[in-house]
Design a binder for these strands. Structure first.
Length: 298
DNA sequence: AATCAGGCCTGCGGGC
DNA sequence: TGCCCGCAGGCCTGAT
Protein backbone atom coordinates (compact mmCIF):
# COMPACT_ATOMS: atom_id res chain seq x y z
CA UNK A 1 0.00 0.00 0.00
CA UNK A 2 2.18 2.61 1.26
CA UNK A 3 4.46 4.73 -0.84
CA UNK A 4 5.86 8.05 0.26
CA UNK A 5 2.59 10.04 0.47
CA UNK A 6 0.85 7.27 2.41
CA UNK A 7 3.75 6.90 4.85
CA UNK A 8 3.81 10.67 5.34
CA UNK A 9 0.09 10.66 6.10
CA UNK A 10 0.34 7.75 8.51
CA UNK A 11 3.25 9.42 10.26
CA UNK A 12 1.26 12.62 10.73
CA UNK A 13 -1.60 10.59 12.19
CA UNK A 14 0.75 8.80 14.56
CA UNK A 15 2.29 12.07 15.59
CA UNK A 16 -1.11 13.52 16.43
CA UNK A 17 -1.85 10.61 18.75
CA UNK A 18 1.56 9.90 20.28
CA UNK A 19 3.79 12.96 20.35
CA UNK A 20 4.52 14.14 23.89
CA UNK A 21 3.06 11.02 25.46
CA UNK A 22 4.76 8.13 27.20
CA UNK A 23 4.73 4.51 26.05
CA UNK A 24 3.85 2.55 29.17
CA UNK A 25 3.64 -0.90 27.63
CA UNK A 26 4.67 -2.69 24.43
CA UNK A 27 2.80 -5.85 23.47
CA UNK A 28 4.48 -8.16 20.97
CA UNK A 29 2.37 -10.90 19.43
CA UNK A 30 5.15 -12.59 17.45
CA UNK A 31 8.92 -12.64 17.27
CA UNK A 32 9.27 -10.32 14.32
CA UNK A 33 8.17 -9.42 10.81
CA UNK A 34 10.56 -9.33 7.84
CA UNK A 35 13.31 -9.86 10.41
CA UNK A 36 13.18 -10.47 14.17
CA UNK A 37 12.24 -7.61 16.45
CA UNK A 38 15.34 -6.06 18.04
CA UNK A 39 16.60 -7.55 21.27
CA UNK A 40 14.78 -6.12 24.27
CA UNK A 41 12.36 -4.09 22.15
CA UNK A 42 9.65 -3.85 24.80
CA UNK A 43 12.05 -3.09 27.65
CA UNK A 44 13.83 -0.41 25.64
CA UNK A 45 10.63 1.40 24.62
CA UNK A 46 8.54 1.08 27.76
CA UNK A 47 8.60 4.15 29.99
CA UNK A 48 9.96 6.43 27.27
CA UNK A 49 8.26 9.59 26.07
CA UNK A 50 7.70 10.16 22.35
CA UNK A 51 9.64 13.28 21.36
CA UNK A 52 9.00 13.65 17.63
CA UNK A 53 8.55 11.90 14.31
CA UNK A 54 10.25 12.06 10.98
CA UNK A 55 10.03 10.23 7.67
CA UNK A 56 12.86 9.06 5.43
CA UNK A 57 11.67 7.55 2.14
CA UNK A 58 9.05 4.98 3.20
CA UNK A 59 10.43 4.63 6.72
CA UNK A 60 8.96 6.28 9.81
CA UNK A 61 11.21 7.17 12.73
CA UNK A 62 9.68 7.76 16.14
CA UNK A 63 12.17 9.56 18.36
CA UNK A 64 12.03 8.48 21.99
CA UNK A 65 13.59 10.19 24.97
CA UNK A 66 16.98 8.83 26.00
CA UNK A 67 18.27 8.82 22.45
CA UNK A 68 16.71 5.90 20.64
CA UNK A 69 14.39 5.93 17.63
CA UNK A 70 11.80 3.32 16.77
CA UNK A 71 12.00 2.63 13.05
CA UNK A 72 8.82 1.39 11.39
CA UNK A 73 8.39 0.23 7.80
CA UNK A 74 4.91 -0.71 6.57
CA UNK A 75 6.00 -3.02 3.74
CA UNK A 76 3.21 -3.90 1.32
CA UNK A 77 0.29 -4.43 3.65
CA UNK A 78 1.16 -2.64 6.89
CA UNK A 79 -1.11 -0.12 8.58
CA UNK A 80 -1.40 1.50 11.98
CA UNK A 81 -4.55 1.31 14.07
CA UNK A 82 -5.18 3.45 17.14
CA UNK A 83 -7.95 3.33 19.66
CA UNK A 84 -8.53 4.84 23.09
CA UNK A 85 -8.62 2.23 25.83
CA UNK A 86 -11.93 1.71 27.56
CA UNK A 87 -13.89 4.09 25.41
CA UNK A 88 -16.94 3.23 23.35
CA UNK A 89 -15.53 5.07 20.34
CA UNK A 90 -12.71 3.16 18.73
CA UNK A 91 -10.85 5.14 16.12
CA UNK A 92 -8.36 3.33 13.93
CA UNK A 93 -5.25 4.59 12.27
CA UNK A 94 -5.64 3.37 8.73
CA UNK A 95 -2.92 3.27 6.13
CA UNK A 96 -3.22 7.00 6.19
CA UNK A 97 -2.95 7.26 9.89
CA UNK A 98 -6.29 7.21 11.49
CA UNK A 99 -9.72 6.66 12.62
CA UNK A 100 -12.62 4.56 11.62
CA UNK A 101 -15.23 2.26 13.07
CA UNK A 102 -16.29 1.78 16.63
CA UNK A 103 -15.66 -1.39 18.55
CA UNK A 104 -15.79 -2.10 22.24
CA UNK A 105 -12.38 -2.10 23.89
CA UNK A 106 -12.93 -5.69 24.91
CA UNK A 107 -13.23 -6.72 21.28
CA UNK A 108 -10.63 -9.29 20.26
CA UNK A 109 -7.42 -7.85 18.85
CA UNK A 110 -7.44 -7.24 15.17
CA UNK A 111 -6.00 -10.06 13.05
CA UNK A 112 -2.29 -9.65 12.27
CA UNK A 113 -1.82 -6.95 14.89
CA UNK A 114 1.80 -7.83 15.66
CA UNK A 115 2.84 -4.97 17.94
CA UNK A 116 0.83 -2.66 20.19
CA UNK A 117 2.07 0.49 21.94
CA UNK A 118 0.03 1.47 25.00
CA UNK A 119 0.31 5.10 26.10
CA UNK A 120 0.01 6.97 29.37
CA UNK A 121 -3.01 8.85 28.03
CA UNK A 122 -4.99 5.71 27.40
CA UNK A 123 -4.42 4.89 23.75
CA UNK A 124 -3.45 1.66 22.07
CA UNK A 125 -1.58 2.01 18.78
CA UNK A 126 -1.18 -1.21 16.82
CA UNK A 127 0.89 -2.25 13.82
CA UNK A 128 -1.21 -4.52 11.60
CA UNK A 129 0.55 -6.26 8.71
CA UNK A 130 -0.98 -9.41 7.18
CA UNK A 131 1.82 -10.13 4.72
CA UNK A 132 4.53 -9.34 7.26
CA UNK A 133 6.80 -7.58 4.77
CA UNK A 134 7.03 -4.71 7.24
CA UNK A 135 9.85 -4.09 9.67
CA UNK A 136 10.49 -2.68 13.15
CA UNK A 137 13.88 -1.78 14.57
CA UNK A 138 15.54 0.45 17.14
CA UNK A 139 18.39 2.77 16.22
CA UNK A 140 20.29 5.43 18.17
CA UNK A 141 18.69 8.72 17.16
CA UNK A 142 22.07 10.27 16.41
CA UNK A 143 22.83 7.42 14.00
CA UNK A 144 19.54 7.10 12.13
CA UNK A 145 21.09 7.81 8.76
CA UNK A 146 23.66 5.09 9.30
CA UNK A 147 21.04 2.39 9.80
CA UNK A 148 21.52 -0.37 7.24
CA UNK A 149 18.02 0.24 5.83
CA UNK A 150 18.59 3.99 5.41
CA UNK A 151 22.26 4.38 4.61
CA UNK A 152 21.99 3.52 0.92
CA UNK A 153 18.92 5.60 0.11
CA UNK A 154 18.99 8.26 -2.58
CA UNK A 155 17.67 11.81 -2.17
CA UNK A 156 14.25 12.67 -0.82
CA UNK A 157 12.20 13.63 -3.88
CA UNK A 158 10.59 16.62 -2.13
CA UNK A 159 13.92 18.06 -0.96
CA UNK A 160 15.41 21.02 -2.77
CA UNK A 161 18.50 18.90 -3.35
CA UNK A 162 16.50 16.68 -5.70
CA UNK A 163 17.05 18.64 -8.89
CA UNK A 164 17.07 17.74 -12.59
CA UNK A 165 20.86 17.85 -12.45
CA UNK A 166 20.95 15.46 -9.52
CA UNK A 167 18.54 13.05 -11.19
CA UNK A 168 20.43 13.25 -14.47
CA UNK A 169 23.63 12.31 -12.68
CA UNK A 170 21.92 9.30 -11.09
CA UNK A 171 20.46 8.13 -14.41
CA UNK A 172 23.56 8.63 -16.56
CA UNK A 173 24.88 5.35 -17.86
CA UNK A 174 21.94 3.30 -16.60
CA UNK A 175 20.87 0.78 -19.22
CA UNK A 176 17.64 -0.17 -17.47
CA UNK A 177 14.19 1.21 -18.34
CA UNK A 178 13.36 4.50 -16.62
CA UNK A 179 10.47 2.73 -14.85
CA UNK A 180 12.89 0.37 -13.09
CA UNK A 181 15.38 3.15 -12.38
CA UNK A 182 12.80 5.26 -10.56
CA UNK A 183 11.80 2.27 -8.43
CA UNK A 184 15.46 1.94 -7.42
CA UNK A 185 15.56 3.56 -3.98
CA UNK A 186 19.21 4.55 -4.44
CA UNK A 187 18.25 6.79 -7.39
CA UNK A 188 15.43 8.56 -5.56
CA UNK A 189 13.91 7.37 -2.30
CA UNK A 190 10.23 6.86 -1.66
CA UNK A 191 8.62 6.25 -5.04
CA UNK A 192 6.75 3.00 -5.59
CA UNK A 193 4.91 1.46 -8.50
CA UNK A 194 1.94 3.82 -8.43
CA UNK A 195 3.74 7.15 -8.28
CA UNK A 196 6.39 6.12 -10.79
CA UNK A 197 3.60 5.37 -13.29
CA UNK A 198 1.87 8.65 -12.53
CA UNK A 199 5.03 10.76 -12.69
CA UNK A 200 6.12 9.26 -16.03
CA UNK A 201 2.67 9.97 -17.42
CA UNK A 202 2.79 13.59 -16.29
CA UNK A 203 6.25 13.98 -17.76
CA UNK A 204 5.23 12.38 -21.07
CA UNK A 205 8.03 9.82 -20.87
CA UNK A 206 7.63 6.18 -21.88
CA UNK A 207 8.29 3.75 -19.03
CA UNK A 208 10.31 1.67 -21.52
CA UNK A 209 12.76 4.43 -22.37
CA UNK A 210 16.31 3.75 -21.23
CA UNK A 211 17.14 5.59 -18.03
CA UNK A 212 20.33 6.97 -19.54
CA UNK A 213 18.36 8.77 -22.25
CA UNK A 214 16.27 10.56 -19.61
CA UNK A 215 19.23 12.48 -18.26
CA UNK A 216 19.08 16.10 -19.38
CA UNK A 217 15.94 17.64 -20.85
CA UNK A 218 13.67 14.79 -19.83
CA UNK A 219 14.89 15.02 -16.25
CA UNK A 220 13.84 18.68 -16.41
CA UNK A 221 10.27 17.47 -16.91
CA UNK A 222 10.49 14.43 -14.67
CA UNK A 223 11.63 16.11 -11.47
CA UNK A 224 8.76 18.64 -11.33
CA UNK A 225 6.32 15.86 -12.25
CA UNK A 226 7.55 13.69 -9.37
CA UNK A 227 7.39 16.55 -6.88
CA UNK A 228 3.93 17.61 -8.04
CA UNK A 229 2.31 14.19 -7.90
CA UNK A 230 3.75 13.48 -4.44
CA UNK A 231 2.76 16.88 -3.06
CA UNK A 232 -0.76 16.60 -4.45
CA UNK A 233 -1.19 13.14 -3.01
CA UNK A 234 0.03 14.20 0.43
CA UNK A 235 -2.39 17.11 0.23
CA UNK A 236 -5.21 14.65 -0.47
CA UNK A 237 -4.23 12.42 2.45
CA UNK A 238 -2.54 9.83 0.25
CA UNK A 239 -4.40 7.17 -1.65
CA UNK A 240 -6.29 4.25 -0.24
CA UNK A 241 -6.91 1.26 -2.43
CA UNK A 242 -8.59 -0.31 0.56
CA UNK A 243 -10.90 1.17 3.09
CA UNK A 244 -9.34 3.16 5.86
CA UNK A 245 -9.89 6.46 7.53
CA UNK A 246 -7.56 9.15 8.76
CA UNK A 247 -7.28 10.71 12.21
CA UNK A 248 -9.48 13.58 11.13
CA UNK A 249 -12.11 11.15 9.88
CA UNK A 250 -11.39 11.66 6.20
CA UNK A 251 -10.23 8.96 3.83
CA UNK A 252 -7.25 9.46 1.53
CA UNK A 253 -8.70 10.32 -1.84
CA UNK A 254 -5.80 10.63 -4.18
CA UNK A 255 -6.55 7.33 -5.92
CA UNK A 256 -9.52 9.04 -7.55
CA UNK A 257 -7.01 11.27 -9.30
CA UNK A 258 -4.78 8.57 -10.75
CA UNK A 259 -4.39 9.27 -14.45
CA UNK A 260 -3.08 5.84 -15.42
CA UNK A 261 -2.52 3.52 -12.46
CA UNK A 262 -5.10 0.72 -12.49
CA UNK A 263 -6.84 2.23 -15.52
CA UNK A 264 -6.04 -0.28 -18.26
CA UNK A 265 -8.20 0.26 -21.36
CA UNK A 266 -9.63 3.51 -20.07
CA UNK A 267 -9.15 6.59 -22.23
CA UNK A 268 -6.09 8.66 -21.50
CA UNK A 269 -7.34 11.81 -19.75
CA UNK A 270 -5.11 14.16 -21.71
CA UNK A 271 -5.19 12.76 -25.23
CA UNK A 272 -7.39 14.74 -27.60
CA UNK A 273 -10.44 12.82 -28.80
CA UNK A 274 -9.63 12.76 -32.51
CA UNK A 275 -7.91 10.64 -33.49
CA UNK A 276 -8.68 8.73 -30.32
CA UNK A 277 -5.73 7.28 -28.47
CA UNK A 278 -5.86 3.59 -27.79
CA UNK A 279 -6.26 4.18 -24.11
CA UNK A 280 -4.14 3.24 -21.13
CA UNK A 281 -2.06 0.12 -21.65
CA UNK A 282 -0.76 -2.30 -19.04
CA UNK A 283 2.59 -3.99 -19.54
CA UNK A 284 4.80 -5.95 -17.14
CA UNK A 285 8.30 -4.66 -16.39
CA UNK A 286 10.57 -6.42 -13.93
CA UNK A 287 7.59 -8.42 -12.79
CA UNK A 288 5.48 -5.38 -11.94
CA UNK A 289 2.54 -3.83 -13.75
CA UNK A 290 3.17 -0.60 -15.59
CA UNK A 291 0.31 1.59 -16.80
CA UNK A 292 0.90 4.22 -19.47
CA UNK A 293 -0.41 5.95 -22.58
CA UNK A 294 1.77 4.92 -25.56
CA UNK A 295 0.63 7.93 -27.55
CA UNK A 296 1.36 10.58 -24.96
CA UNK A 297 4.46 8.97 -23.44
CA UNK A 298 7.51 8.68 -25.67
C1' DA B 1 29.09 -3.42 -11.43
C1' DA B 2 24.60 -3.72 -13.00
C1' DT B 3 20.48 -6.06 -13.81
C1' DC B 4 16.87 -9.32 -13.16
C1' DA B 5 14.03 -13.23 -11.47
C1' DG B 6 12.57 -15.24 -7.34
C1' DG B 7 11.05 -15.32 -2.76
C1' DC B 8 8.96 -13.65 1.39
C1' DC B 9 3.46 -13.88 3.17
C1' DT B 10 -1.67 -13.36 3.16
C1' DG B 11 -5.96 -11.61 1.19
C1' DC B 12 -8.95 -10.44 -2.39
C1' DG B 13 -11.43 -10.30 -6.69
C1' DG B 14 -12.56 -12.40 -11.04
C1' DG B 15 -13.71 -16.32 -13.68
C1' DC B 16 -15.56 -20.64 -13.85
C1' DT C 1 -22.26 -20.35 -3.56
C1' DG C 2 -17.65 -21.95 -3.70
C1' DC C 3 -13.09 -22.94 -5.45
C1' DC C 4 -8.91 -21.80 -7.87
C1' DC C 5 -5.87 -18.73 -9.86
C1' DG C 6 -3.61 -14.54 -10.55
C1' DC C 7 -2.35 -10.53 -8.66
C1' DA C 8 -1.09 -6.90 -5.08
C1' DG C 9 1.32 -0.49 -3.12
C1' DG C 10 8.18 -3.35 -1.04
C1' DC C 11 12.46 -4.99 -0.67
C1' DC C 12 16.26 -8.33 -0.20
C1' DT C 13 18.89 -12.19 -2.01
C1' DG C 14 21.27 -14.82 -5.23
C1' DA C 15 22.40 -15.85 -10.00
C1' DT C 16 24.02 -14.11 -14.25
Amino acid sequence: MPELPEVETVMRGLSAVLQGHRIVEVELRRAGLRFPFPLGLARRVEGRRVISFRRRAKYMLMRLEDGESLLIHLGMSGRMVARPVGDAAMPRLGPQGAVSDARGHNAPPEAHEHMVLVTDHGWRVGFVDPRRFGAVDLVPTAEEEGHRLLSGLGPEPLDDAFTPAALSAALAGKRTPIKAALLDQTVVAGLGNIYVCEALYRAGISPRRLADSCAGVRAERLVPAIKAVLAESIGAGGSSLRDYVRADGEVGRFQERFAVYGREDEPCPDCPGVPPCQGIQRIVQAGRSTFFCPKRQR
